[in-house]
């Protein structure tokens, strides 16, 4: 966490701005409710009581791209859906991250054919790939934690 030093019981916490910003970003990340196919069912599973993604500050799924900062592409992206997906990504405010959940979103999976995009990274930049067809809810949670690690290490200098 971003707390570097705690000075006695004066109630003052000192940290760097970079760490404070990254800390707040990781702990209130709002994913977009973007279920495409089979993986969406496991994403719902990760939301529900048994796996409970809200332990990581991820429970607030937003249906609107304008309110969210993480896009979890859960499922296969067809050629017809691809421009829609890019459009949604463009509508998200910066800073934004993308998780490609499942084999289909990561590389096309078992569907190597005319209809399916061979990996969502052809149209949007992806931060974390999660393998599995579909990944277990634990896999998704692991992917989210990996993303948290990445975000908490971000530098001011590299911000767009």
């Amino acid at each position: 966490m971003g707390i570097e030093q705690k000075t006695g019981n004066t109630g003052v916490v000192t940290t760097t701005l970079e760490q404070a910003v990254n800390w707040s970003r990781t702990n209130s990340m709002w994913p977009m409710l973007f279920g495409l196919a089979c993986c969406a069912i496991e994403m719902m599973g990760a939301q529900a009581a048994n796996y409970d993604m809200s332990r990581f500050g991820m429970e607030l799924m937003r249906a609107s791209p304008r309110q969210s900062d993480l896009m979890i592409v859960a499922g296969r992206v067809s050629q017809k859906m691809a421009p829609v997906l890019r459009n949604l990504y463009d509508q998200m405010p910066d800073p934004k991250w993308v998780i490609a959940m499942g084999d289909c979103a990561a590389c096309g999976g078992v569907f190597n054919n005319y209809a399916i995009l061979q990996g969502v990274d052809e149209i949007v930049p992806v931060d974390v790939y999660i393998s599995g067809c579909p990944p277990r809810p634990e896999g998704l949670i692991n992917g989210v934690i990996t993303l948290h690690k990445k975000v908490s290490g971000e530098k001011f200098a590299k911000w767009k």
Binding site: L36, G75, S78, Q79, K80, F111, N112, N113, Y114, A115
Partner: peptide, 11 residues
């Protein structure tokens, strides 16, 4: 419809 057309029959 067709936003999830996967080409399964062809594959």
């Amino acid at each position: 419809v067709g936003y999830l057309h996967t080409g399964i029959e062809k594959n």
